[in-house]
Simulated assay, not measured.
Amino acid sequence: MSAPQDRCRLVLIVPANDDAANQAKTLEDALRGGDVASVIIPQYGLDDATFQKLTEVLVPIVQEAGAAALVAGDSRAASRSKADGLHVVGNAQALAEAVENFAPKLIVGGGNADDRHKALEQGESNPDYMFFGKLEGDIKPEAHSKNLALGEWWASMIEIPAIVMGGSDIASALAVSETGVEFVALRQAVFGYAGGPAQAVAEANALLDEKAPRFGG
Rank of each mutant, 00 (worst) to 15 (best):
V89F: 00
V88L: 04
P60G: 08
M130W: 05
A92C: 13
K105D: 15
P141G: 15
M130F: 01
Y129E: 09
Q93K: 10
L135T: 13
A98N: 00
H144K: 10
S79D: 10
K82P: 00
L58I: 05
V108L: 08
G109C: 04
V88W: 00
L106I: 10
Q52S: 12
H144S: 14
G109D: 03
S75A: 15
A143D: 13
V88H: 10
F132M: 04
V62G: 10
L54V: 14
E124F: 03
S145T: 15
P127G: 12
P127W: 08
H117E: 15
L70D: 08
Q52C: 11
G66S: 09
A96C: 05
E100C: 01
A68G: 08
G111D: 03
P60T: 06
P141I: 08
G66H: 03
K140F: 15
F132R: 05
A68I: 02
D74Y: 08
P60Y: 04
M130H: 04
A69S: 12
A113W: 09
V62P: 02
V71P: 00
A92E: 13
D114A: 06
E64W: 06
G85V: 04
A119D: 00
D84S: 08
F132P: 02
D138M: 07
E124W: 00
F102N: 05
P60E: 05
L86M: 11
S79G: 08
L135H: 10
E64D: 14
R116A: 11
S145N: 13
D138W: 03
A68L: 13
A67Q: 14
G85F: 08
A83Q: 07
K53V: 06
A143W: 01
A92S: 07
D138L: 12
F102M: 06
E64A: 15
K105F: 11
A96P: 01
A96I: 06
K134S: 15
